[in-house]
Simulated assay, not measured.
Amino acid sequence: MTHLTVAVRKGALILLALLLGSDLWAGVAQQDASIASVCRTLSREPALALVGAEHAQVAHEVGAHFSMQASDQYRVSEAERLTDIATQLLAADVLFREVLGLTPPLQRPRYQQADFIMVILRTEQVRGGQAYDEVVRNPAIPECHIRMALGGRVEAATNLTPAHELFHLYQNAHMMFKQGWVHEGLARWSESLLSGDVQPGPPLPTASSDLESIMQSSYGAVTLWQRLFYLLDPQGRISLPSSLMSLRYHDGSQVVTLEHLHGSRFVAPLFEALHQASISLAEQQQWPTYGWAEAEQRSLQYNHAILAALYRAISAYAPKEHQPEELRRFMQLIDTMLKERE
């Protein structure tokens, strides 16, 4: 066994480098490099070290190619935790690609410079997670990559944070908008792909004040997306790869329990509309395509651009004559709000 000096006591970050195969997270799209994000060097980053356990047989169980090593202090329970996280991420990636029809992050123009997705386990953090949007490298890991971080004690069998953060990477690859009602509301909705907790949601807002309130919210905006997706696809029929339904965590629980999902075919057109809106807004403001300031990415003053993109996506997906009355009223509300802003 290879021994590493992973300075957990010094608060060093433990790295789980998920090099998930050339077919899954590695292939880089052949796009115009001039519009891709620049690979930035993180010169002040705390030391990172590969972790894992050879005896966990992760590659055999999950079909992944891991670059993992373990110190003598690394327990079997820790190896199981890593395997469960990897299993959830792989399942989520298949769901996002095959059920929602989204293009993987590394195949999008923004991340042409990235070679892989890295997952960092933070020893000083118990739970939670964070997705980053830049292409980076550091002295210890010279290859360009994008990354997400998880609390070092995240238990995937009872916590969907890994899938949630991976969905953020999909969002970052498609759009520059990080307004909470879109960024966190949709990511919270994405958790239902694994949990199977599919809800029809409450009625859509009928007054501008109600919609404005939702657009100032974050995770709570999930109810808007639930309802919208339900109205666009009330039957929610989906077809899942049999391999997903057979996946289990170490405790024997099922990784994916989804039976139906409303609006699965609308997500990709929605993401494309938001992508185009991002490009248009960058051109109007004379910003770099993928170089927006963080404050601009989160600014609520650009909700009108998101609403316009949402309106266009719905109109293309479900023409007015095919929209239920509740959805038609919602579309009229958006149209009115956009015209009032002109």
Rank of each mutant, 00 (worst) to 15 (best):
T2E: 13
A7R: 15
A12T: 15
L15K: 06
L16M: 10
L16Y: 14
L20H: 03
S22G: 13
W25C: 09
A26H: 13
V28G: 12
V28M: 08
Q31R: 14
D32K: 10
S34P: 04
R40H: 07
L42N: 09
R44F: 03
E45S: 08
V51E: 13
G52V: 05
G52R: 04
A53N: 15
V58A: 15
A59W: 10
G63S: 02
A64I: 11
F66A: 09
Q73G: 08
Y74Q: 04
Y74H: 07
E78N: 09
E80L: 15
L82V: 11
L89F: 01
L90P: 06
L90H: 12
A91N: 11
L100Q: 07
T103V: 15
R110L: 02
A114C: 03
A114I: 04
D115A: 11
I117Y: 03
V119R: 01
I120E: 15
L121M: 12
L121D: 01
T123L: 00
E124M: 11
V126L: 06
G129T: 02
G129Q: 02
Q130D: 12
Y132H: 08
R137Q: 08
P139W: 00
I141A: 11
P142E: 10
R147T: 10
M148P: 08
G151D: 00
G152V: 06
A157W: 12
T158K: 11
P162Q: 04
A163W: 07
L169M: 07
Q171M: 13
A173F: 00
H174S: 12
M176V: 06
K178H: 10
Q179N: 13
W181L: 00
W181D: 02
L186W: 00
W189S: 02
S192V: 05
S195P: 11
V198E: 13
Q199N: 15
P203T: 00
S208D: 11
S209Q: 13
D210K: 15
E212D: 14
E212H: 12
E212S: 11
I214G: 00
G220R: 09
A221N: 04
W225P: 11
Y230W: 12
P234G: 06
Q235L: 10
S239E: 09
L240I: 00
H250E: 14
D251Y: 01
Q254D: 10
V255C: 05
H260I: 00
L261T: 04
H262G: 01
R265G: 03
A268D: 04
F271E: 00
F271C: 01
L274T: 05
H275P: 03
A277F: 00
L281C: 05
Q285Y: 03
P288Y: 03
Q297K: 10
Q301H: 09
H304D: 10
L310R: 01
A313D: 04
Y317G: 02
P324L: 01
M331W: 06
D335K: 14
K339E: 07
E340R: 15
E340C: 10
